[in-house]
Design a protein around this nucleic acid. Sequence first.
DNA 1: GTAATAGTGTCTGTTAGACAGTATAGG
DNA 2: CCTATACTGTCTAACAGACACTATTAC
Lengths: 257, 257
Amino acid sequence: MATTNIIPVKQGKKGTYLDLYPESSYDPTAFERPTYAVDMAIFRLFEGQLEILLIKRGQDPFKGRWAFPGGFVDIRNRECSEQAAVRELKEETGVADLKGTPTQFHTFSDANRDPRWYNISTVYYYLMREEEWTRVPAPKEGDDAAEVRWWPVSKITKGKMGFDHYTILTLLHMHLMANAWELSLPFKLVPKRSVFTLPELHEAYEALTSAKVDAGNFYKAVKKRYMLRRCGGKKAAGGVGRPADYYTSDGVRDAFA
Amino acid sequence: MATTNIIPVKQGKKGTYLDLYPESSYDPTAFERPTYAVDMAIFRLFEGQLEILLIKRGQDPFKGRWAFPGGFVDIRNRECSEQAAVRELKEETGVADLKGTPTQFHTFSDANRDPRWYNISTVYYYLMREEEWTRVPAPKEGDDAAEVRWWPVSKITKGKMGFDHYTILTLLHMHLMANAWELSLPFKLVPKRSVFTLPELHEAYEALTSAKVDAGNFYKAVKKRYMLRRCGGKKAAGGVGRPADYYTSDGVRDAFA
DNA sequence: GTAATAGTGTCTGTTAGACAGTATAGG
DNA sequence: CCTATACTGTCTAACAGACACTATTAC
């Protein structure tokens, strides 16, 4: 048996991969292979602020610092990176059954991004709706021992995170700010998928962009752009002031999954 | 010596990576590692058409089909993926000394994208200016034996390309069409970096978006948005009709590198 | 002069933003 | 009534697109 541990695709049929293409002029074992990891950046909207789900590292390197949920892709079982991101999220935070698919942001491959060995990471992000929060531990104020918690993005500093995750978070946050409108991101933060209120969308937009936007103008713009239609009912009272109407978006209902 | 061939970062100092973190609860060698490759999509504007630089595969799999230049990242020498994309481009096509940096598009990690083993690829793209074409063989009509040549993007069909490269090209082409204006892509296709004419930009824009755009309106828009300034001189005569003025963009001169 | 390409002016409908005004809830 | 929040109307300046018009070259 070769010393390689690369898995041949058709192992039972033709033998190891070297047998499959004996005339291949190059041999993948001649190249070192990196470890391949994924990171998952889960965002939510909480009390008007954009928050991110982080885990506290229990061991070196960067013991005690915070990091994205993530881990190695299970190559042996032919897992793709997106599946790995979902699986690692569940294993490390208990969050399962995402309603939509995470979006690939970028792949980081600097040789020194992990102090131990050459590791590359593909970073995914996902904007989580309120009804998906259930499995995530609530943040406890001042409880540093919590291993998993939401952090307001605005409160995270460079020294708080391990590896290059602060840099990644900054790049990702800039991406969200710049593309909130084009990528329809407010819809992905708002509860109940296709039924929502205009103030909810407005709050999500402001949280994503860190900018103040005139509510009335925003309502008009979003109604026109997404062909929103009032769908009956009002947000249950209890708050102060006039309750908001519910809206739906027929045409692009599934585009916000 | 361990059976792993992962390179410890501080080899001479403390030994192998396992010695560095003996209490680590996880061991990267417990995970299979993928081969890690890059693909480079080089575009140019030629006779009003968007073209891409492809190589013809000389061996299986997909012998005789066309593919992006690319290859394995040299992990052993701590090369990052962007460096690898530039190096492989040079090795496979002779194109060297890119004036700007390639842009990362996406990382593909489906287990079956390479029929031989689990391979992931990070795809980069680069829009090439006319003065960088010199090392690239000119296309020969009907010469199927050429190993490296430019192909008009519009003439590429699914069966012509190997691996999943046609899918990748389609996704990438859609990305370029959708973001030509926002990403200032026409500037990256146009000769001489910061000195250009408005018709050149217009032609580049139409080639990128596959759409007809009123030239006059485009001139006005681009001059305003990029604060273009007429910088003297006119395009050398020889063509028919009025020669175009040269423009420059002070404020964002280096943004188009 | 004509032909061809480069660039400007003008008109019109749309949009973005500021901000005033109206609507509907609780108290 | 009041306050607070949810909208809607109105005005204006900017913008986009259609298209007519002028400008500069070759011949």
